[in-house]
């Protein structure tokens, strides 16, 4: 398994654990009143789960297992794959910070944090598609 895949997969496992911890905390809203910033973390939980865990796991496995791009570059552009990893996780972590903060603070900073998070995650998605497209081919 390539180093980058190990990084993707282990990071995705950390997100799975984090998502489940957050789900547990959010479930406490059934029994008690949560602080506003925490109660606003519902979308954060969904995205930790589906972007941080599921999509990131898929990205790591695809990088490892999909057909070779070419003999010279079997996994396509490996630098781009590493950049995608960085963009996806930076974007997601900015969301984890920015979304609850935006719920309790009117400061413009948090709005820009969310916009930057959106841009980084979008670039990661587009980069992944661009790097994977050529590996999806008939034998």
């Amino acid at each position: 398994m390539p180093t980058l895949t190990r990084l993707y997969v282990k990071t995705s496992l950390l997100y799975l654990a984090s998502a489940l911890v957050l789900a547990l905390v959010l479930a406490l809203a059934q029994a008690t009143t949560l602080p506003v910033w925490l109660a606003a973390a519902g979308p954060t939980y969904i995205h930790l789960f589906l972007v941080g865990w599921v999509t990131q796991l898929i990205m790591g496995i695809v990088f490892w297992m999909f057909p070779k791009w070419s003999k010279e570059r079997p996994r396509g552009n490996e630098q781009l794959a590493a950049v995608v990893y960085g963009l996806l996780n930076a974007g997601l972590l900015l969301r984890v910070v920015g979304e609850p903060a935006r719920a309790v603070s009117p400061a413009a900073l948090w709005g820009w944090v969310l916009a930057l998070s959106a841009l980084l995650q979008w670039l990661a998605g587009v980069g992944f598609v661009a790097n994977t497209w050529g590996r999806v081919k008939e034998r």
Partner: peptide, 25 residues
């Protein structure tokens, strides 16, 4: 799989627009 990748790009685009809008309205 290529259609799935196209949907990934589309879905991420929709999500990015909504998240940016959540921040900047």
């Amino acid at each position: 799989i290529r259609l799935a990748l196209a949907y990934l790009a589309t879905g991420f685009t929709f999500g990015a627009l909504m998240l940016a809008n959540k921040g900047l309205s």
